[in-house]
Amino acid sequence: MTTPQNPALVLVDRAYRGSVETQFADVLYIIRELNRQTGGLHLALRGHAVTYAVAAPEYEPSVHLGSRTLDTLPDPRRSVRTMLDEGATVWVEEADLQRIGPKAASRLLPGTRTAAPGELALRWFSYSQVWFM
């Protein structure tokens, strides 16, 4: 049974799965809703998805397509900040953070925790659910 004392762990290891067709309805949207439904979950970001928790000062979630300005593209950092504010615990895996270099790694969103290799896996028994999404 998933409770705030026995939370679910959701891992995301595939990133950038569609922008124009996805807009607000990306995987973080689902996970934010699950965070609300479950009373607080843990989100672990791996691979390229660690960049969801790295500030992107030059990114505007907007493109011009013909006469249309589509300004509703996914904004994963905003989603992660919101989830942190709403009580989710957000992890990034250190190995993947190191891969993007020290400058980018220094922009890790405040409140995000880092996990050493294997650290989270060794805790899987303590989570009510372990889901890759």
Binding site: D13, R14, R46, G47, E93, P117, G118, A121, L122, W124, F125, F132
Partner: peptide, 19 residues
Amino acid sequence: SPGGERFVEDALHLAAAGH
């Protein structure tokens, strides 16, 4: 699949820890 290899590493950590 980098994610797949990481998953196998998870399995390795668990086995190495005696699970």
